[in-house]
Design a protein around this nucleic acid. Sequence first.
RNA 1: GUGGGUAUAGCUCAGCUGGUAGAGCGUCCGGUUGUGGUCCGGAAGGUCGCGGGUUCAAGCCCCGUUACUCACCCCA
Length: 420
Amino acid sequence: MAAPVTPPRGMRDFLPNEKAIREHALGTIRRIFAAHGFDEIETPVMEDSARLHSGLGGDNEKLGFAVLRRGLSPADVAAAAESGDILSLADLGLRFDLTVPLARFYASHRAELPAVFRSIQIAPVWRAERPQKGRYRQFVQCDIDIIGEAGPLAEIELISATTAALDALGLDGCSVRINDRRILASLLAHWKVAPELAERALITIDKLDKIGVSGVVTELDGLGVDIDGIADTLEVMPGLGWDAAAPAWLDHSAYADLKALRDALPASKLVFDPTLVRGMGYYTGTIFEIAHPELGYSLGGGGRYDGMIGRFLGTEVPACGFSIGFERIVDLLGATGTVDTDAVVLVHEKDADPARLVALKAELVASGLRVRLERRTKNLKALLDRAAAAGYGRYAFVTPETGPPGSLQFRPLGESAHHH
RNA sequence: GUGGGUAUAGCUCAGCUGGUAGAGCGUCCGGUUGUGGUCCGGAAGGUCGCGGGUUCAAGCCCCGUUACUCACCCCA
């Protein structure tokens, strides 16, 4: 206990049963995304430090793990400390999302990609936050993105594929909250919020369902926003559904676009929520988020980020993406507990001949079985219970008298097999 | 970054008003069973997170610290 044997804070080991659940879920998501016409790619876990920080707001920079330049001298460190630019000591950083790397990837490989590129990325990202329930410092995101499609078809395909994946995983009760940055912009214009306060004002609006109208007004007041008339607007916002009469301040063009999305996606549960904001600063149009009634945090999210590719490429390319928060999904999935009757355990005496055991095993493996050798222990029950928990469905004893595989007497494993 | 809770055997946890460190499970050994998932007995395994302090005496009280965890902030 003296030596630290735990993984780094917020990062986790996965035991065999946990790993099996994760791989099963990953396989499901991958299969659905591929069925919807997306192609999987992979990018490095690190990106150029300056590039990572070019695509988002100032607060998010603190969340990035930076990687020190190799071969730094004490003089380099002292110089950086003196200039106050500590980040200059780092030239690389671990990615904190998959969108910035994708934009870099697309800019690098555009010539080799179709005009409209549909990508899948399933990979870990890192954020230096304080861990808690549903939040880790290393976590897997499952992203699909469509680059090169400016119209609503991109949003429709993304939401359709994502909700199909959630359905395939057996997750009930999920809904997709949806809004548009243009609607938020029209709201800020209506309130005459100064541009330099816009980002923080939006984050405050996002909290409406948690801190209420008076809480939002108080916080906006603290930011220096003129709060005259704001409470009246806030009162009606949560009630704005699909069919309510839109207030004058609301961007009617964007609202009509969202309604068209809703009409095109009858199978997905879309909920219009004008208070939905989302943190990443690069979104320009539609934004969406997966909500679950039992959870205070989202299971995923995404939106349109038409400006980002242009920052890497020079020419503007429209883009839209949707990300599933894999860890939060897995936390919702129970143990699968599948027992495989084609998986068998051979229990042998401790002095059994290894050559004979492995030959017997090889014959069974060749016949299509999954085979595990276990040395007989005093506590046979514990051994067999562990095997059953690992998914093995049958077992047999190997004794000196055991002949060919056909002479093995297999018995069922598992809770229902205790009385024989 | 802010606040709460927790820290004792490999695991889950007891430990009274401060007085020699405990149980269950697991592991190992002996017997029982003899085609076996039963039962009986025994053993190994602990700097009580770490460092100070109070006391004749600290797992227990006080201070600090670290880790884990929950919540806030923010986010997937």
